[in-house]
Amino acid sequence: MNSQHYVPQPGWPIHLSLVLALLSGLLPVKESIAEFMPNLVLLVIVYWALYRPESVGLGWAWLIGLVQDLIMANLIGHHALVYVTVVFLIKYALVKNKNYAFFDYMSWLIAFVILDLLFAIVLNWSVQQISPQWSLVYSVLGSILIWPWLYALLSIVEALAAQIQN
């Protein structure tokens, strides 16, 4: 928003959105929709890392991944590794120049979702000998569909939070 005089922005939108994203992963959904369900935690982390890189650290992303792995009873360290990699790539390589367009962010997001998926496939295959399923591709589609809405929602919440603070 206003980058000329920087004021620290409230952290509660970040925490709240992450808690909700974590919980939403546990909500039961219809099987027909379930295939399209994106990993909302990844999307929320990508959003905050892109638009508020100063309040997002690697350790923070790692911890969220760990919490998700424990709650979802996954292999511990799986999501922690993915989120650390994603936040590292964003902070180290991408967010040096802030003049990117929405569609640049969108294409990075697709790359990150595919990275998340590839990692899950490799892990499933090497640890449990599960061959990859085509239905996993649907969740990439789901992520692409939901991203603009998530973007709009989170930027509104962020703007509101900033307004409340001032």
């Binding site: 690697l58 350790g59 790692w62 511990i76 360290g77 922690a80 590794l81 650390v84 990699t85 180290y92």
Partner: peptide, 24 residues
């Protein structure tokens, strides 16, 4: 080496270590 790179490698190794621990 930039501190963020060191941090990244440390967390990466930690995650892989945890995965091994959990698996075995």
């Amino acid at each position: 080496i930039k501190p963020i790179v060191g941090q990244f490698i440390f967390l990466l190794v930690l995650s892989v270590g945890l995965m091994f621990l959990d698996q075995f």
